[in-house]
Design a protein around this nucleic acid. Structure first.
Lengths: 215, 215
DNA sequence: CTTGCGTAGTACCGTACGGTACGGTTCTGC
DNA sequence: GCAGAACCGTACCGTACGGTACTACGCAAG
């Protein structure tokens, strides 16, 4: 349904991991993104990374290549949570979901994620520059891909009863709600770590209430 | 909690409504925003609106002023739904919420809203340019302000049982879920009008299930 | 020591755009 | 019909930035 025209996401196969020096550069880009949004110049990157613009262009081709490499590097740092499918009690299931929800909210309202998503949103308007696509693939879609098997296991264990895609939509809504868009729009009123824990907990409880096998 | 340092939102008091000619200009800006995102130039506005750049600068001061005027004009076009507090049956309440949810989803996934929110998000990164703030005030906050009295009425009639701010967060999450962020990131898979009706209906049902007075 | 490669630093070019200036034209009030 | 303001169209300026060219230096191999 969603996987159409697979984009080049072969950062895990082609050029494996960026070298230490490259990571320095990409890290500078991330910092600049957080500080100045999309406005930073190639010159500022070169200056702060103590490299020449020529090197940037040799390594990444153009500005968009640099941004793409940065986004993909950042995405590659997010690790996949595991759920051992053996002992799937309601307790385990619920706790796993809560932990995931908490971590997800923390990431999404973090500075780096905000900067990255701002960049992707603004680039999604202008055609060319597939940054929006890439963030979409590594953001919502990736989370969906990660959560679906978890939901599936819960379903097979009779803990929930709902179609997978509906489960994802519901879970996203209950957990994230308006937190992300408000952060993107510059709302300074960010949820504290305590708020997040609270949100995650009640979201999971609501989730289980709504689709905890009863139909 | 949210209303701090009230920004200049006096488009309703100072210069009332833009003239017909001004509306032509602002409409051109909206069109260009939908077509090209933030990338459009003042020259392109002048060209398509068949006016001179000098006029644009005389009227709006600078580019940011033009954008601000456009955003505020668009926001002023959204009308406030009413709920007659007299006959507040569960049926009426539920139908009102469903209609609101449906309309909300339609607006948020529409081209104009997407373009506007993209603009606001990208400007929220760069300080100066209070566009993010303005969209935040006229988007999520305005919806919150609109919904709170409705929830309050429902609460007083014993139909729901939840704190107002929690009700808003919950309602937002159930109705909007990942639809807006996906649209902003350029997901072409927009919900059809039928999907929207479906989403709105089940969202309201879920909302009433979760906080329909039972605690 | 010498040769050659990779890179830092910098100067440079072309372009795009925000903002201004100005001549010519239309509209408005008297 | 006349004066003044508003406005259109366009030419122009300054700047900022993406991208390229070139020089100098460090360093490793032979």
């Amino acid at each position: 349904m969603n996987e159409q025209a697979p984009i080049n996401l072969d950062y895990s196969t082609s050029e494996d991991a960026p070298s230490a020096r490259e990571q320095e550069v990409l890290s500078v880009v991330l910092d600049l993104m957080v500080e100045e949004g999309d406005g930073f110049s190639m010159a500022s990157v070169a200056r702060r990374a103590a490299c020449s613009k020529e090197t940037l262009y040799r390594w990444y081709g153009d500005r968009d290549g640099l941004l793409t490499a940065t986004v993909q590097w950042q995405a590659s740092k997010v690790v996949m949570p595991k759920l051992d499918d053996a002992n799937l009690s309601l307790e385990t299931f619920s706790e796993t979901l809560k932990a995931f929800a908490s971590s997800w909210l923390t990431v999404l309202t973090g500075d780096v994620s905000i900067a990255l998503n701002r960049l992707a949103v603004s680039h999604a308007g202008n055609n060319k520059s597939s940054l929006g696509r890439i963030v979409l693939e590594n953001g919502p879609y990736a989370m969906r891909t990660r959560l679906l098997p978890i939901f599936l296991k819960g379903q097979k264990s009779g803990l929930i009863n709902v179609r997978g895609d509906e489960a994802f939509r519901l879970f996203f809504g209950l957990v994230i709600a308006d937190a992300q868009i408000r952060a993107l729009l510059g709302d300074e009123n960010k949820p504290s770590q305590n708020d997040i824990k609270q949100f995650a907990q009640s979201a999971v409880e609501q989730f289980l209430t709504l689709c905890g096998s009863k139909i």
